[in-house]
Design a protein around this nucleic acid. Structure first.
Lengths: 356, 356
DNA sequence: TTGTAAGCGTTATCAT
DNA sequence: ATGATAACGCTTACAA
């Protein structure tokens, strides 16, 4: 016989009722430990529980939800599960949900807008009570927002500021991050700093650049345009690596030399390191490199990558906390729910940066 | 007003029926494009569809599944979503499911047996039609199996051989992988090869070691025990990194020198490289290093890690294909479903290995 | 302290 | 070519 085969023959609450000799309602009340179960005789409870266990009774989530109008689920829409950035946020969401009766329904849009919409529809059909959207670096603002608005459902976007009157968001302070990265390099004595900016269309990209410029302005440091490159638009989140390699090679070919490189994100930084090493330079000996995010590979490489850490797990937790509050509290003080939270990034010094 | 707030007021099939002027049954038939819809007048269809669209009707998945006894979902039980090994398999599963009407319900056990069992129960309550278990490196055989047996549900385990009469599995050929890794190093001229084995309790670990020994025996190569280390048992899948660092440092302290190192997996290899570099050695100049798995960080580090690649996405696809077949085909030729499939690993040469 | 009955939104079966 | 009705398994008023 093949190992794969099944014939479902489920035990229902009626079976438990007849076996135990009580009515379905009593069984329901006992098994759910509903308020009314306080008035049920201890012996009755015992017999019911025994019958349920013996029969291997498992309540049908569909029937239950259909009846009481609660799905006890929150939808989690992500854009690419292979993106470590997503993964860590997911962990935060799951950890936060673990202690509740809520279940995440995770859907991965595979970086395709079409899928995003389809999955959103599926989540609605499954009557999720709240929605968390993990926006990765190619979530283009605007378009998808419209579809979200129609379903008035507690919604939190994490990783991108898309707050509206109906949607909350939790993001990292990209401006502060850019500022801090620049500050770190500058304070190590670097005065010839190359910058690889993120794709122009990307919101994060410009905010980080803003922070970089701000630091420069405050310290009378001239950002030489010859030392600045722009990552091309791209779909694949790991394309930052190749982008980093290419941008750095281009930088190396140019006339302007540099002793430090500030990359848009970790993958870009890792690509930069690859190019630097291949060109015969050492990191951080000949050139310091700093990234942004603190995705796992940043810690596993040698030298370990100095980076601006986003508290991704915490972001997931916060987002989850919000939707839970919106979902559980009936309509209590809505005002306590902030439309947007900006978390501080943190400088994480490893081995890829050093004094000039 | 706070952005988080909702008041669900769902449109039902009855609403569509009254608005369009037809009965719920006809609406159902039309909207589902059921066989009977062949006999429904074109104009009727049109009016019904228009009404549904205008009202924003969305069928209730709970009611539907309750009625027709099909959840159209498959449960996916993973052990750690932050483990890149898991992630890639998940991608395969999702991609394979995308083209079907099935939805994955993903649950992450966070490396805890307790959670595993709880989530398994939840999946059963949600009436998943099939189950895929992604076993990562700490899925201890035996224990959890028992719970799986009771629910006779098409089940496939990927990443660990747990085949029984009720469970299929898809795994990589670990013996061949170990053999190939050894062969690669040997063919580059290495004769002083250090080996960091995986935790003893881990099935994979011993199979890979078997392959290594087999190659050695066939080529009259002596595996010097002084050049062999064992990774400690551990919970965290990323602990391989620290384990690799520690084992390598220990190896370096010992009398026996080596020109190549074969690591249990990629993270271990990355840890080994870290230790090697810190000790002043270069990779692959002074020591070649080979890993196993081909997780993303292996490609982003410099030097890129030579490794034995597991076709993880394909494994996910195959597993999914099996449960789909078991689920969709009523009870057609069960015999075509193999109880276990062993995929060949592939040597992926990057820059961390070179001729001695 | 427990039972009865209605109904959640759908779809399958049977009528018309 | 379309409609009426029952039933999926559960919870919750309300009744006893």
């Amino acid at each position: 016989m093949s190992p794969l085969k099944a014939k479902s023959n489920h035990v229902t609450i009626v079976d438990v009722a007849t076996t135990s000799g009580f009515s379905p309602s009593t069984v329901s009340i006992v098994l759910n430990e509903a308020p009314l179960s306080r008035y049920v005789a201890a012996k009755t409870k015992e017999r019911i529980r025994k019958a349920a266990k013996d029969l291997g009774y498992r309540p049908d989530a569909f029937a239950r939800s259909l009846r009481n109008r609660r799905s006890h689920t929150v939808g989690v829409l992500i854009f690419d599960i292979s993106d470590p950035f997503c993964t860590l946020i997911l962990q935060g969401i799951e950890r936060c949900l673990d202690s509740t009766a809520y279940l995440p329904i995770i859907m991965d849009a595979h970086n395709e807008k079409k899928q995003f919409e389809g999955y959103l529809e599926m989540l609605m059909e499954r009557r999720v009570e709240g929605l968390i959207v993990v926006a990765n670096w190619l979530f283009e603002e605007g378009g998808l927002l419209l579809n979200l608005r129609r379903n008035n459902l507690p919604t939190v976007v994490v990783g991108r500021d898309l707050s509206t009157d109906l949607i909350s968001s939790v993001v990292v302070d990209n401006v502060a991050g850019g500022y801090t990265a620049m500050e770190h390099l500058y304070s190590l004595g670097h005065r010839k700093i190359a910058v690889i900016r993120g794709p122009e269309k990307l919101g994060d990209s410009n905010l980080r650049w803003q922070g970089i410029q701000q630091f420069a302005a405050e310290h009378n440091y001239q950002l030489d345009p010859r030392r600045v490159r722009l990552l091309p638009e791209a779909l694949d989140p790991t394309s930052g690596f190749e982008g980093g390699v290419a941008a750095t090679e281009d930088l190396l070919r140019s006339a302007a030399d540099f002793t430090a490189l500030l990359a848009f994100d970790d993958l870009t930084a890792l690509g930069a390191i690859r190019a630097l090493i291949l060109s015969g330079r050492s990191v951080p000996g000949d050139c310091s490199v700093i990234g942004f995010d603190d995705v796992p590979p940043a810690a596993f490489c040698t030298p370990g990558l100095t980076t601006i850490r986003q508290p991704m797990e915490e972001m997931g937790r916060i987002a989850t906390g919000w939707v839970l509050r919106a979902v559980q509290g009936p309509d209590t003080e809505d005002a306590i729910l902030p439309p947007m939270q900006i978390l501080s990034p943190q400088l994480l010094i490893r081995e890829s940066t050093s004094r000039v």
